[in-house]
Design a protein around this nucleic acid. Structure first.
Lengths: 220, 220
DNA sequence: TTTTGGGTTTAGGTTAGTCTAAAAATAAGT
DNA sequence: ACTTATTTTTAGACTAACCTAAACCCAAAA
């Protein structure tokens, strides 16, 4: 099954909106996500339905099919591998990679992706800490919780941020937090939920609850 | 000036057909090169003319403008940088890179190309020995001659092949010749023009005139 | 100088992806 | 259950890039 770049983008959006499950997604939501008009979405849904990558019943939203899910995960895999490449090899900053990866992900060449994966040493997570599906679409999921929900004295590793806006990523950089950092909860303020964490056993950072709930970690 | 992928491809073709100069090129030739129909070419020429990257006078062929030449060289630069990447970093073979580079060259990101260039250590030639234009469109040209035209005992370095078909590139690999190899002419047979060369001061290769005139070298 | 043939352009049609405006279906409130 | 509000779809139009078939230009040969 071959999809155009636009079809790949819609499918990816549908996959994301259905939280990776086959939850039903509305036309309006897709239009918002894709920054197109609902009319354009209807058109595209008909096409994707015909290609059987989604189940489409007029007026009732769509569900992604197993086939569609596999294709969406392929695109996500490509996107995230390119992000790793851009950050690790070409020294892009976190907040510069998305647009470019959005273009690179549509290059059609299984061999390219296979070789890129090897070149990058088979990374399991992208620079934002999101897992990279393998070539069969399998994802190594780790239970990730916001550090605002960890207990005092618990340790873990930062693996992702929820809001990966440029502003937030710059904040992360500035305070010295980063994906992969080992952290330990030093203190939590009951009153406002702010927390103090120790990064890499040396640097202590104090942050508001808002910030802390934006940073996801796996416990260890 | 922003060009679509198709426009970039046409411009590149026109540039190639005019031998890098502003020689006039015919609609039919462009159609052949692009594997499209003459009618489609006419359409495109009108558009490129309006964008002033070519001078287009109906029925009289086209000339590339200085602006067009600069854009064509940008695309060629991107194509060749990606080829270097594919061969040197991802271990692609010579004959596997073209199609993929053809897609990659259309990614729009000056920063990406800048960083890629640095990552590859500012290469001056692609894996086929063709020169990589710099960001201003300047090309380091070296006088290249087929090794069939070198004299006995002359030395040089292989920098390109004329016919870079998969078959020929495989032949090169097989006999141990490659872009960058230092060669010396050991013998030339008057009768049929075949030559014997010494590669890297150790391996001797015997080849027909046909083959020898396909391999370009710079003398040293 | 007129004919003829090859190259080139125009006319009109197709597909992908988008849009606006209007119609239709569903959902919600009384 | 009926009317209204919201969501969704259709209808019709646009652009980019292609196509085929027909018309057109130009130049070379008779």
């Amino acid at each position: 099954m071959n999809l155009t770049a636009a079809e790949e983008n819609y499918l990816k959006a549908i996959y994301h909106l259905s939280d990776g499950a086959s939850k039903s997604v509305s036309t309006n939501d897709i239009a918002a996500e894709m920054k197109t008009k609902p009319a354009s979405v209807s058109d595209m849904l008909r096409k994707l339905g015909e290609k059987e990558v989604i189940n489409y019943r007029k007026y009732y939203g769509v569900n992604i099919t197993p086939e569609g899910k596999k294709l969406a995960l392929q695109t996500i895999r490509k996107h995230r591998l390119w992000e790793v490449f851009l950050v690790e090899k070409l020294n892009f900053a976190w907040d510069e990679v998305h647009e470019v990866a959005e273009e690179l992900e549509h290059i059609q060449s299984p061999l390219l992706i296979q070789r890129l994966d090897a070149f990058l040493n088979y990374p399991k997570f992208d620079p934002h800490g999101d897992p990279i599906p393998d070539e069969f679409g399998d994802v190594k999921a780790r239970p990730r919780i916001p550090i605002s929900e960890m207990e005092i004295d618990q340790s873990g590793q930062i693996v992702a941020v929820k809001d990966s806006s440029a502003a937030f990523l710059r904040y992360m950089d500035k305070v010295g937090a980063y994906i992969g950092a080992r952290v330990k909860i030093l203190d939590k303020v009951e009153f406002d939920g702010s927390v103090e964490i120790l990064v890499d056993q040396k640097k202590s950072i104090f942050m508001s609850k808002d910030v802390a709930s934006n940073i996801l970690a796996v416990q260890s």
